[in-house]
Design a protein around this nucleic acid. Structure first.
Length: 738
RNA sequence: GCGCGAUUAGCUCAGUUGGUAGAGCAAUCCGUUUACACCGGAAAGGUCGCAGGUUCGAGUCCUGCAUCGCGCACCA
């Protein structure tokens, strides 16, 4: 190879992502390109341009980023860079989530492992300091990782779900809902996590199928009806037996009441008729335990049944004879069965499989318990919103097409969830989170955004479900409840991109909060991505040992390669598989681009690009082909088909531009006449220029580096062709369509 | 119980409104003092899960079934 003094020295070696990426990211950050205000100030964006805005789904401050986060960052950064290159006022807001239960239980585990201490040993204040320290460290790690991924997030607007500004938003939201009677305090059966010692919402339950024994028995010798249960220990709290109103076997008993002593506990049973009872299951008669089953509690409400709690917060028995009293529920179960046997009341035992609800975070089996908690009423008509309920407010914008969901099949899943939605329990008995903004003094209760001035008021010790604060995210990050310019310019956000697994947790709650508090949608589009699995389609997890660390992959192959591997083959809503071979392949692609750049610069330094040359037939055809490719991919970008665009660009760059156009240019440059040489060289430059722009959203680092080496240096033309630019590629324009 | 998704080359996946199957990776052969061995070229590899139907024509639309995966509900 002939040394060429105009070839940048860096280009003479293979592409080295490690020594390029951090440097480039720093240039972007220092240039302020991630901040739309700076872009306007510097003239890269028109002040009156259309706005594009998006919030980053805030990662939990529970440790490090995994491949799922990497996918999120890759897809969203592609959207953002595309919008920015189209000249839109582009804002992508970063932030992190305090993730109340998840973070607290993580710190509790560390505390127990390293110091053999419980949080009670430290006390609320000291324990929270530990959690905050852990959260801060996680936060720093996460931010660093997001930058490594090349995410063009506006760090000047970074938010945290638990910071002061967000607290103001949370307290304001709570107070409004309280004043509207949407938030209420009620004594109801809730999902109690005995391990985490807190309530959790219905959505935080994970059902596990297990084998269980179904016992059929009578409460006492003279009780007329046999019932079946998998949880005999709860039967000490039964207050009714429910049968189907049309069941001929039991019709005569309906309305009658019986007394018995069940395993040492006096019980009073009323026979009721309810058509939710299935005649075919078990004996067709259901022992109703209003205090320890969600369904039974609802039946108890309907039939006005008394509540007899028999299990406490530690999943221990608080009723019964000495064989059960104080015992764990699992032990008590055996004791009750033993008692039934000796009393001759047990009629049948059979193996069945059943779904057991466990807590998402701690894995503990959920104990339904009656407790005084804070709830959001989803069925109450709201005067300020045309007497619509929260359920209706959540349903409407999706049903009416104001919010478009991609893929649209998730709209049905969403409707289904809303139909089955019950009041949302928002109070948690953990320490890390937004404390409920309610204060008590004797019998009085005060709800406000700040503590009352007078002495003697004590704040409710409970904290709020982390999703309460995440629900406000699209507008709390933009300054709400203040009427900020950001809120005006960037809300509703353009698109919300996240995993389909948090459709209910997060997306639904954001729609709820925004519809109620702002009377507007939080976003116009929802793009749902799937899970990232390993190359065998297995879910990545630490325990399986198949988890891939995005940082490791970046170190080995470069960020651009990781982004391409994540994006190609990833259609919305579908799970995708990540294989290291693919990442390696895209790493080679980055190097291919690098070498193409070297070839182009070495062969075109003497190119006079003033005016447009007369192209020969082949080159004319190539220009047309590229132009129609740009048309095609622009359309696909607008349809969020990034996986197609990335693949097409990859393919065109390598197998058309490099393999065909460059190969044929060698001959022309060596043997052709002046006209042919000019045509060939011109094509080389314009192709590279256009393809770098188009590839930038996908592979921002290598494209920016090449752009910097070539197009802000020595290749220049007049209008109509590839041009010199003082701009970095990040703020260059998306290739124009024909 | 209700619903959703997947099933296409050895592997991972594309396949837009129906027009006789196509990429990457892997494997095979050939080449290579070449911008690039992180390369180029060639060849190979598929009754598109099964069975019906609509159609001139089905990987694509309809019906049924199978296998795998997922969500929701029930869970006495």
């Amino acid at each position: 190879m002939k040394e060429n003094e105009t070839t940048p020295e860096k280009l003479l070696k293979p592409y080295n992502p490690a020594e390029t990426e951090d440097k480039i990211y720093k240039l972007w950050e220092e240039g302020g390109f991630f901040n739309p205000d700076v872009c306007i100030e510097k003239g890269f964006t028109q002040a009156e341009a259309e706005a594009f805005s998006m919030v980053l789904p805030p990662p939990n401050v529970t440790g490090t980023l995994h491949t799922g986060h990497a996918l999120t960052l890759a897809i969203e950064d592609i959207m953002v860079r595309y919008a920015r290159m189209q000249g839109k006022k582009t804002l992508w807001v970063p932030g992190t989530d305090h993730a109340a239960i998840a973070t607290q239980s993580k710190v509790e585990k560390i505390l127990e492992k390293e110091e053999s201490k419980r949080k009670g040993d430290l006390g609320r204040e000291e324990f929270l300091k530990r959690v905050e320290k852990f959260a801060q460290e996680s936060h720093d790690t996460i931010i660093n990782q997001a930058k490594k991924m090349g995410a063009s997030l506006d760090w000047s607007r970074e938010a945290f779900t638990l910071d002061k500004k967000r607290e103001k938003a949370v307290y304001t939201a709570f107070k409004r809902m309280y004043d509207d009677g949407l938030i209420y305090r009620g004594y109801r059966v809730v999902n109690w996590d005995p391990k985490g010692q807190t309530t959790i919402s219905d959505d935080e339950l994970v059902y596990e199928e297990r084998k269980a024994k179904l016992y059929t028995f009578k409460y006492s010798k003279d009780f007329p009806i046999s019932i079946s249960t998998t949880r005999p220990e709860t039967k000490l709290g039964d207050t009714a037996v429910a049968v189907h109103p049309d069941d001929p076997r039991y019709k005569e008993f309906v309305g009658k009441e019986y007394d018995a002593v069940f395993c040492g506990a006096p019980i009073h049973i009323k026979i009721i008729a309810d058509d939710s009872v299935e005649m075919e299951f078990g004996t067709g008669a259901l022992g109703v335990t209003p205090a320890h089953s969600m369904a039974d509690w609802e039946m108890g409400q309907k039939h006005n049944l008394p509540l007899v709690p028999v299990i406490n917060e530690f999943a221990k028995m608080i009723l019964g004879n000495e064989s059960v009293l104080g015992k764990k529920t699992t032990e008590a179960r055996e004791a009750v069965v033993e008692w039934l046997r000796t009393e001759g009341l047990l009629e049948k035992e059979e193996e069945i499989s059943q779904n057991v609800s466990t807590a998402e975070r701690t894995g503990a089996i959920i104990e339904p318990l009656p407790k005084l908690q804070w709830f959001i009423n989803v069925n109450k008509p709201i005067a300020s919103r045309g007497n619509k309920t929260l359920k209706e407010l959540m349903l409407e914008p999706v049903r009416d097409g104001k919010i478009k969901v991609l893929p649209d099949r998730f709209e049905r899943v969403y409707y289904n969830w809303i139909e089955n939605l019950r009041d949302w329990c928002i109070s948690r008995q953990i320490w890390y989170g937004h404390q409920v903004p309610v204060w008590y003094k004797n019998e009085a209760l005060y709800c406000g955004t700040e503590a009352p001035q007078e002495e003697g008021w004590i704040q409710d010790p409970d904290t709020l479900d982390t999703w309460f604060s995440s629900g406000l995210w699209t507008f709390s990050t933009l300054g709400w409840p203040d009427e900020t310019p950001d809120l005006k310019t960037y809300h509703p956000t353009t698109v919300l991109e996240t995993g389909y697994d948090i459709l209910f947790f997060w997306i639904a709650r954001m729609i709820l909060m925004s519809q109620y508090l702002l009377g507007d949608i939080p976003f116009k589009n929802v793009y749902l991505h799937g899970l990232v699995r390993d190359k065998d389609g297995k879910k990545m997890s630490k325990s399986l040992g198949n988890a891939m660390d995005p940082l490791e992959l970046i170190k080995k192959y470069g960020t651009d390669a990781v982004r391409m591997a994540l994006i190609i083959g990833t259609a919305p809503g579908n799970d995708s598989k990540l294989a290291e071979e693919n990442i390696r392949g895209y790493g080679r692609f980055a190097n291919k681009m690098w070498n193409v750049a070297r070839f182009v610069v070495e062969n075109t330094t003497d190119l006079d690009t003033s005016g447009t040359p007369a192209f020969d037939e082949e080159d004319e055809a190539s220009l047309k082909e590229l132009s129609s490719l740009i048309d095609e991919i622009t359309k696909e970008m607008d349809e969020y088909k990034f996986y197609l665009v990335a693949e097409k660009l990859y393919h065109y760059f390598w197998h058309t531009f490099a393999d065909i156009i460059i190969e044929r240019s060698k001959k022309k440059i060596a043997e052709g006449d002046a006209q042919a040489i000019l045509s060939a060289k011109w094509i080389l430059v314009s192709h590279l220029n256009t393809l770098l722009r188009a590839l930038h959203p996908f592979m921002p680092f290598v494209t920016e580096e090449i752009w910097g080496l070539l197009f802000t240096r020595n290749v220049s033309t007049e209008t109509g062709g590839p041009s010199t630019s003082s701009k970095m590629l990040i703020v260059e324009s998306w290739p124009s369509q024909s």
